[in-house]
Design a protein around this nucleic acid. Structure first.
Lengths: 361, 361
DNA sequence: CTGAAAGCGCTTACAG
DNA sequence: CTGAAAGCGCTTACAG
């Protein structure tokens, strides 16, 4: 192993020792493998048209020297000073954390610069203003809900030629790309899970009517009932807004029904947590007296007792994917077509402790 | 306003329009201001030794052209391919989100590359292993609790010459720098707040004994009681571990006391949420029958009803500051001294709805 | 106090 | 299938 440039760095100097990782450059790898830097670059990016033996040698050298490309250099050389913004407006959304982790992973991998913008304090007008300003300095934006439901905001970016990907919403999927799960199917899965446990009176708390996911989840609930031959009862469906507070109120309405449900499906975890709290206040055991399930698999779902059965949404992966889609759109040659992507990731039913068979079954 | 290089980009091409932001380079600014790029660079970095009129002209041009430096280029040129890792092990810590936002802000500003590592699935041995591996590729690490309390991990990095900053813990402050708040004073403030409302029997739930903050917060509780001339009652202090579950158990013990407290101070929000839940299950109104307060001002504190009075810890700012400290250590010339920094940020008491005067006062 | 030149580590046309 | 050269936009010595 030859560290042509690196070796003398490993002496005593504090500062320089710390740089040792980047001491290995593409040229070092090229020399080690006996090819040009060009070829190394091709191999690394998986470009076709490299002889198999050369490819193998390069990969070997990369491993031997523990080479890690310098992202700053890549970004600069590729003139890909791509700056992508992730905008959030809902600080209480527990999944912002996952969103950040995923976006960071994606932007690092792609050597794009990530900017986080918090717009929760801004009014509608200030948001449009901010969007206009941002359009001047970023090539793409990731729009989580509820921002991606706003035509004004989406328009602002699209008009400015900024690439946009919405997370968890297909509202404007004809104009911008989106990454999401199949909310309807996921909701269907959850209701079927409850039915399989013997529940026939299943309460449902809807989500924010301004978010497309709400309609899909609700539809999934109805589909599953109908598929199981259960009739749909209006009284069992109460409006919510994805907030803890709204969950509290909906749960109260549901549990004071003359014939209360034996299970409640709140369409997100925050509301489901609220249901558990209301149940406790009313002296009901969960899941003994009432089964409760949520949606999203956020932190909130394990912050209650018992922990909630819920639907896992791969949020980090969604953000990561969003970066890829954005970059592809930004870097592709100008095409007349445009063509948005509608990327659907797999969801997963997470079984925890908040579901049991109904009383007396 | 002359966009020597930019103008022709603004034509129809989709791709290139998106690059317009970076079309303005330092050379453009230099030309606009009638100086060299060198001088622009000096002004931007606030280096001394630039004539006042030149400085003013440059700043004017920067503003006029809306110049934004290309971070990739800065990083590359400065040979500051500094890579910093943020390692987390506690995915349920609601403040990871803030940590990420702050770290990202800091790393973007400083053109450092940020890497997020999740070690929560790893055992002690695997963590040491991971630390060793990471030491080869990063110049600095940010260690939030509880990781920063582990001598083995800290040693692994320090030995490898990697700069380390711990968040919210001064445990190894003689060997590594830390960013934190004054936990003891903050806790004192909170207890004084309860006393000011007329509470004299104040329950306390301690934190994870392995985290230094726990001891400081507990000390603040005792200090405040003593300062107010109240006696310290062992029965009112119950052990917790910063988890929701442990809060549930501690609250049960506290509320079954023959003489239960009129207020409970849980030393973090997760446990305080648990206290509220237990209170409700026992038919107690919060804050009517029991005042409850937390610590950290995380998402959990507004996820319960009533929302919790708590101590705000500026977590994002802490991470941001950590990046600065790290960079200073990494980039400073090798010095024999070393010298760690102990940076204390201001906390804030957040008053919400979970405190009232005790019953019958 | 100021600037011309070299170079950071990659990638992108362009030739073979 | 492969490589030499130019260049991405900045900063760092080095000279004035």
């Amino acid at each position: 192993m030859q560290r042509s440039k690196g070796t003398h760095f490993l002496k005593s100097s504090h500062k320089v020792v710390r740089r040792k990782a980047s001491a290995i450059t593409m040229d070092d790898v090229a020399a080690h493998a006996g090819v040009s830097a060009m070829t190394v670059s091709r191999v690394i990016h998986g470009h076709a048209g490299v002889r198999e033996d050369n490819r193998a040698r390069v990969m070997r050298s990369v491993r031997d020297l523990d080479y890690r490309p310098n992202l700053a250099a890549s970004a600069l050389a590729a003139a890909q000073h791509t700056c992508i913004a992730l905008i959030y407006t809902n600080p209480s959304s527990s999944y912002l954390r996952e969103l950040l982790v995923g976006a960071l992973r994606g932007s690092t991998r792609a050597a794009a610069q990530l900017v986080i913008a918090a717009w929760d304090e801004l009014g509608a007008k200030a948001r449009r203003e901010a969007a206009r300003r941002l359009s001047g300095s970023v090539a793409g934006v990731i729009l989580p809900p509820p921002l991606c439901e706003s035509k004004a905001i989406v328009d602002e970016f699209v008009t400015a030629g900024v690439a946009v990907v919405s997370i968890a919403s297909s509202h404007f999927s004809d104009r911008i790309s989106c990454v999401r799960i199949d909310d309807r199917q996921a909701s269907h899965d959850m209701v079927s899970h409850l039915i399989a446990h013997g529940h026939t009176r299943i309460g449902y708390i809807t989500g924010d009517p301004n978010q497309t996911a709400s309609a899909h989840r609700w539809q999934g609930y109805r589909d599953a009932l109908s598929d199981a031959g259960l009739h749909y009862d209006d009284a069992l469906v109460q409006p919510g807004y994805f907030t803890y507070r709204s969950g509290l109120e909906a749960a109260d309405r549901l549990l004071t029904l003359s014939q209360p449900p034996s299970a409640i499906f709140a369409s997100n975890d925050d509301m489901a947590s609220a249901v558990v709290s209301v149940a406790h206040r009313r002296g009901l055991e969960v899941p003994g007296d009432l089964s409760v399930v949520g949606f999203d698999d956020t932190f909130a779902s394990t912050m209650v007792w018992p922990e909630l059965t819920t639907i896992h949404q791969p949020v980090a992966e969604m953000a990561d994917t969003a970066i890829d889609i954005l970059l592809r759109e930004i870097r592709r040659p100008p095409s007349p077509a445009g063509g948005t992507v509608n990327h659907v990731l797999a969801h997963r039913l997470i079984t925890r402790a908040s579901v049991s068979r109904p009383l007396g079954s």
